[in-house]
């Protein structure tokens, strides 16, 4: 439950933002990053709907490669299960 996933901010409205990653859209709260300078286009780590840290595009990319692998394992598991 402590695994945060990176997403890119596409829209900001106060503390609320819309983020996307790999075609998935999500409403996200920027409340925990309200003291940071956050702009549309930035990458953030999301955990349970809240952005907890700003990260670089490159780190977002690396993390996504990891998740791709994990999720395919998960699907494999569902078949074997």
């Amino acid at each position: 439950m402590c695994l945060a996933v990176p997403m890119q901010i596409t829209h900001i409205d106060g503390f609320n933002a819309r983020c996307s990653a790999k075609g998935v859209q999500r409403e996200v709260s920027l409340f925990l990053l309200q003291d940071d300078d956050i702009q549309v286009g930035d990458h953030v780590l999301i955990h349970v709907g809240y952005a907890i840290q700003k990260i670089s595009e490159q780190d977002a990319q690396t993390a996504w490669e990891l998740f791709d692998r994990m999720f395919s394992m998960e699907e494999a598991d569902a078949v074997i299960g």
Binding site: M1, C2, A4, S29, F31, L32, H47, V48, G49, I52
Partner: peptide, 17 residues
């Protein structure tokens, strides 16, 4: 609301808001 610090912080955000 179960969870470690990473999850409790968003819960705190929800409460404060």
């Amino acid at each position: 609301a179960a969870g470690f610090e990473t999850t409790s912080a968003p819960v705190a955000g929800m409460i404060a808001q």
